[in-house]
């Protein structure tokens, strides 16, 4: 099932805009009221990243990620936001690329690893920005939270993939 170039391009564009809308919408979810930690997000845009990774392949997924980060910083977030989202995103993407090949790990696991890697990337940027290694003190909290947010985005991905499964043969049949 070879897709045409236009098809691929349009799909990429749709996914980018979806990711942008999702990352904007999740600002209205008051997650910080439950967990008072800086930079806590559900990471809904990760659903799109995962989708792109599985359905379009690594190259397109990377393109979508980078364009999403750049556009996201144009619409709000600024340069520092770009550094945070870009590093976090690239970390998450790389880790997910590696682990999606593992047979024993489902969408949940890949999504959790992505969320954890995203937080590690962001902490690294925070270390550079603050000029201090003490920011690492936040990492344990962020990692624990990423297990839960990763599960949440994982289950969303599962729902999305289930629906898309009827249209593709790419997803392994479940028992």
């Amino acid at each position: 099932m070879k897709k045409s170039k236009v098809n691929q391009m349009t799909l990429c564009a749709i996914l980018i805009s979806m990711a942008l809308v999702l990352s904007y919408m999740e600002r209205f979810i008051p997650l910080q009221m439950v967990i008072p930690l800086p930079g806590i997000k559900l990471g809904l845009a990760n659903v799109v990243t995962l989708m792109a990774l599985f359905f379009l392949g690594q190259k397109s997924a990377f393109t979508i990620l980078i364009l999403r980060c750049i556009l996201g910083s144009v619409f709000g977030g600024g340069i520092s936001g770009l550094a945070f989202s870009m590093t976090g995103g690239i970390f998450a993407m790389s880790v997910m690329c590696i682990f999606k090949k593992c047979k024993g790990i489902s969408v949940y696991g890949v999504s959790i690893l992505g969320a954890a890697a995203h937080n590690i990337g962001q902490i690294l940027v925070a270390i550079l920005f603050m000029g201090s290694v003490y920011v690492i003190g936040y990492l344990p909290y962020l990692l624990i939270v990423s297990v839960f947010t990763g599960m949440a985005t994982g289950s969303i991905c599962r729902g999305v993939f289930r629906i898309l499964k009827t249209n593709t043969q790419m997803i392994q049949n479940e028992k």
Binding site: F54, F55, G57, F99, K100, C102, K103, G104, I105, S106, V107, Y108, G109, V110, I112, L113, A116, L139, P140, Y141, L143, I144, S146, V147, R158, F161, R162, M170, I171, Q172, E174
Partner: peptide
């Protein structure tokens, strides 16, 4: 590209790995 959709053993390993790393 094939992916499992249901929660499996590997995921439990992933979760415990992340929590261990945090601790």
């Amino acid at each position: 590209n094939k992916i499992r959709l249901s929660f499996c053993k590997g995921d439990a390993v992933v979760i415990s790995f992340v929590i261990m790393l945090a601790i």
